[in-house]
Design a binder for these strands. Structure first.
Lengths: 346, 346
DNA sequence: TTGTACGCGTTATCAT
DNA sequence: ATGATAACGCGTACAA
C-alpha cells in the first residue's frame, strides 16, 4: 500500500514481516532497528526506516504485550467521572504514567459495583500492568481476586481495614479538625456539620475530626449539631439549608461545615436565595476545593486535598509494585489544607 | 497454583494450555468451551470449567486481539477531562460501548496537540477498533494519518471543513438564536454577547446565531455588543463583568448571553458580589447547562446540549464504520434546547 | 465429540 | 552486522 491511500477498515496493517520484505532484509534486522538500533549499520537502518514510512508501519501493541507477558498500560477505575475531584486525581496519574511512557486506561464505575466488576474483568484480560481504583466498596472481594491473580492494585482515596494493598488517601480526620478550628477561630460557638451518610468513611472521619477539635476547644458538645444528608449532592445541601433555617434562632448555628463542596454550594444557594447573608447569617466551609468553590456567588472557604499528588503517588506505588520485587505495601496519607475565602471571612 | 494463593507480580498466569492439562483434555476443547460451548459434552465442559476456576484462568485479550487482527476496544480522546460537558459525552459513549461489550479507553489531551498526538499514537499501536475524538484542531493532519491507517474515527463536537470523517455536533448557530430570542421575548433591547476567542468554531457560531436572531427581530445592530474573552473560564467571566459594569448606563446591556456556563458563572458572581441584582440589573444566559448551572446562587438559564445522545451517536457511528462495509460518512447535528431558570425569569 | 496443527506480530537467542 | 527460528496465548480449519 502506498502513502496516501486509505486502508479499508478491517484490513490488517503492515507488519515487521512486510517491512523486512520491502527493505530486503530479514525480520530480525527490522526488530533490531526498532529495539537496538546501534546494532544495525546506518545504511540498512536507513533502508528499513524508509520501508516503514512507505508502508505506514505501526508497532502492534497486542503482539508486544503477548510476547512480553504484560502490557504497557495502567488503568484507573474512577468512582465518578463527573466529580471534579476524581478528574484531578486522574490528571495526576496521567502525568506519572506519561513520564513512565505508559498508556492510561480510564474507566468509570459510576458508583455501581457491577460496572466496577465489568471493568476489572476487562482490565484483567488486558493484562494491564497495574490498577488504580477508587472502589465502590474498599472491602469488596473483587479486589482480592485481582490481587490473587497477580495484578498490582492501589486503592485511591479510600482505606481498607487490612493492609493487603497499597493505598493513598488524605487525612480526613485532620481535614475535619482544621475546618472546625478555623470556625472556632472566627468566633463561632454554634456550628453545624452537614453531610452524610456517615457510612461513607470519609464523611465519618471528617465528622470525627470536627468533634475532636470542638472538644479540645472546650466547647459544649451539644453546640455542634449534625445535619445528616443522604448524599453528597447539591440538592441535599439545599434541603439541609431548609432544615437549618427551620431551627429556633437560639439553637440555630452561625456556621456550617459541609462534608463536601457540592453540599456547601447547595447550602450556600439556599441560604442566599432565602435572603440570608453569607457569612453574616451563616458562615460556610466546604471540602475538596473544587474549581467551582472559588466561583460561587460567595467564594467558598474549603479544605483542599492535594489531588494531583494523590494521583501521582498512587501511580508511583503501582509501578513500584509492578517492577520492584522487594516491594512492600504502603499506606500513604496526605495532609489537607484550609483555603479561606469570603464565605467565612466576610 | 491453587485457589487463594497470590501470584507474584510478573509471573505469567494460566493459559488455555494449562487449563487443558489439568482438565485432561486438549487445547482445542478448552477453546471450544470458551467459544462454542454447544459443541462440547456437558461432562467435559464441566471438567474444563472447574479447571479454569481452580487455576484462576483469565482470557488473554492481547492474544485474542492479535489473532483477530483487531481489539475489542474503543477510545475517546477528550479535549478537557475537567469540563463537565465532555465527561457527560464520555458517559454516553460508555453506555453504547458497554452495550456492544467493548472496552472504552478514555484519554485526555488537555487541550494540547502534543498530548493528543501521543495518545493517537498509542491508540494506533493498540489497534483500537475506533477512535472518538474532540480534537484540538479538527483540521490537523494527525487525524488523516489515523484514517489512512484504516482506523475508524469520528469527530465529536467539532466540524471539519471537508467531510472525510463522520462527525456529531450540536447546532451552535441555532443555540445562539434560541438564547437571544429568549432574551428578546423577555423584553431586552440591549444585550451583550460574552465569550471568545472567536477562533473557536463553537463560539463564533453562537455569536452568529445571536446576531441573526437580533437582526430578524428588527433590533438595531449596535445594541447587541460583543464583550470578548480570551478563554471560556470563570475568571474570564468575572473580568467581563467588570468591563460591563464600566459601561455608561445608557449603553449598558440589561442582559448577557455567555458563550458557556463557566463564563456565565463568573459573570454572575461578579455581578452579585458588586451589589447588582440578577436578573433585575442583568439577566444572564449560559451555554451547556452543566450541573452547576442549576446550583448557582441564582439558578442559571442555559442552552442545553444533548450530551449523552451526542456520545451515544458518535459511538454508534464509529462502530458502524468498523464493521459495516457499506458505511458512509455522516455529519450528524443535534438540536439544542433552552432551559429557562431564575437568571432570566426573576 | 475431541484432538492436531498452524498462524497472528513481535522479540530474543543463537548462528552465521 | 545480519539472518533463521522459536515462543508468547488464542482461535479455527481440518482430521480423527
Amino acid at each position: 500500500m502506498s502513502v496516501g491511500e486509505r486502508r479499508p477498515p478491517g484490513a490488517r496493517s503492515a507488519s515487521v514481516k512486510d517491512v523486512a520484505a520491502t527493505a530486503g532484509v530479514s525480520l530480525g534486522t527490522v526488530s533490531n532497528v526498532l529495539n537496538r538500533p546501534e546494532r544495525v549499520s546506518a545504511a540498512t537502518r536507513e533502508r528499513v526506516e524508509r520501508a516503514m514510512n512507505d508502508l505506514g508501519f505501526v508497532r502492534n501493541e497486542s503482539a508486544r504485550a503477548l510476547r512480553a507477558g504484560k502490557s504497557r498500560t495502567l488503568a484507573y477505575v474512577m468512582l465518578d467521572a463527573t466529580n471534579p475531584f476524581f478528574t484531578d486525581v486522574a490528571q495526576g496519574i496521567e502525568l506519572a504514567a506519561e513520564a513512565a511512557d505508559l498508556s492510561l486506561f480510564i474507566c468509570n464505575s459510576d458508583n455501581r459495583a457491577s460496572r466496577e466488576d465489568t471493568h476489572l474483568g476487562h482490565l484483567q484480560q488486558q493484562r494491564v500492568q497495574g490498577i488504580l481504583i477508587t472502589p465502590v466498596d474498599p472491602e469488596a472481594d473483587s479486589l482480592d481476586t485481582i490481587a490473587r491473580h497477580g495484578t498490582p492494585l492501589v486503592i485511591v482515596d479510600r482505606i481498607r481495614h487490612d493492609e493487603s494493598f497499597c493505598s493513598v488517601a488524605v487525612d480526613d480526620v485532620l481535614g475535619g479538625r482544621i475546618a472546625v478550628e478555623h470556625l472556632i477561630d472566627r468566633g463561632h460557638t454554634r456550628v453545624a456539620f452537614v453531610g452524610g451518610p456517615l457510612s461513607i468513611g470519609q464523611v465519618d472521619d471528617r465528622w470525627r475530626g470536627a468533634r475532636e477539635a470542638w472538644a479540645e476547644a472546650g466547647l459544649p458538645e451539644d453546640a455542634l449539631i449534625l445535619i445528616p444528608t443522604t448524599a453528597l449532592s447539591v440538592s441535599e445541601g439545599r434541603s439541609a439549608g431548609e432544615r437549618l433555617a427551620g431551627l429556633p434562632s437560639r439553637r440555630r448555628p452561625t456556621a456550617a461545615f459541609c462534608a463536601n463542596d457540592l453540599i456547601a454550594l447547595g447550602l450556600l444557594q439556599q441560604t442566599i436565595s432565602s435572603g440570608r447573608k453569607v457569612p453574616g447569617d451563616l458562615a460556610i466551609v466546604g471540602y475538596d476545593d473544587i474549581e467551582f468553590a472559588a466561583a460561587a456567588a460567595v467564594p467558598l472557604t474549603s479544605v483542599r486535598q492535594p489531588r494531583h499528588e494523590l494521583g501521582r503517588m498512587a501511580a508511583d506505588l503501582v509501578m513500584d509494585e509492578a517492577d520492584n520485587p522487594r516491594h512492600a505495601h504502603q499506606q500513604v496519607t496526605f495532609t489537607p489544607e484550609l483555603v479561606a475565602r469570603a464565605s467565612t471571612l466576610g
